[in-house]
Amino acid sequence: MTTTDSGNHFEPHVVWVEKGGRVNWINESDSHSTTADHPANDEPQLVPDEAATWDSGVLSEQETTFDHPFETEGVYHYYCTPHETGGMTGSVIVGQPDPDTRPALEELPSEKSEIVRKKLTDLNDTVRGVLDDHRSGEDEHDNDDDHDH
């Protein structure tokens, strides 16, 4: 989580972990949070149905960390509470989710601002690209295995 001349952002914007993996956010500058887009946080649900929610609270000290485990396969969108209106959002991909059955990748919530909706559209495009690339690699690998038998 950082503030630069170009604005506030999560770096990287999209991360991929295996089911049961953890993500550790580090506040590098300014005051930021990592907060799941989830009804428990008064937001529309942009995480898997069974997923545990999280909210780090605002982290103001540099190098403060927040860690969260991801036990449910899927795509999770999250945001920074103080900077969401400026588009400070990110995504976590967990496991090998089917992009066609994920709440985060469905129609964007109308209650989000235009800036946030644009950022979520960009994140969704990136997530779909990562998942497509991974599936293509698996298909090629599967086809190679078929030829070896």
Rank of each mutant, 00 (worst) to 15 (best):
D100T: 15
H83P: 05
V130C: 01
Y76M: 13
T101W: 11
G21C: 12
H147D: 13
G87M: 01
G74K: 01
D37L: 11
E71V: 01
D98E: 15
D132K: 06
S6V: 02
S110Y: 09
S31K: 13
T72G: 02
M1P: 11
G129I: 01
H83S: 05
V116D: 01
G129E: 10
G90V: 04
S91Y: 00
G87Y: 00
D132Y: 06
A36T: 03
Q62L: 06
H13W: 08
S56A: 06
G129V: 00
R135H: 12
T65I: 09
I93D: 11
D148V: 09
H13P: 02
L123P: 01
D145M: 15
L131Q: 07
V17S: 12
S6L: 06
S136D: 15
P109V: 00
D122M: 01
V58S: 04
H32G: 05
W25M: 12
V17Y: 03
M88W: 07
D145N: 10
D144E: 15
S136T: 12
D100Y: 15
T2Q: 07
P69S: 10
L108G: 07
G86R: 04
N24A: 15
S31G: 14
Q45A: 04
D67V: 14
L105I: 10
N24D: 12
A51D: 02
E114K: 15
P48I: 13
P97M: 02
A51L: 07
G95K: 04
Q62S: 14
L123W: 01
T121K: 02
V116P: 01
E114N: 13
S6R: 06
D100M: 12
E140H: 09
Y78E: 00
R128A: 06
V17G: 07
E63K: 08
S113V: 02
N143I: 10
K118R: 13
E73H: 03
G7M: 08
R22P: 00
S60I: 14
L59A: 04
P109T: 00
H141A: 15
N41W: 05
W54I: 07
E138H: 11
F10M: 07
W54M: 02
Q62K: 15
E43H: 03
G7A: 08
T81P: 01
D142W: 14
T81M: 13
V130D: 04
E28Q: 12
I93H: 10
D148T: 12
D125I: 07
V130K: 03
L131D: 07
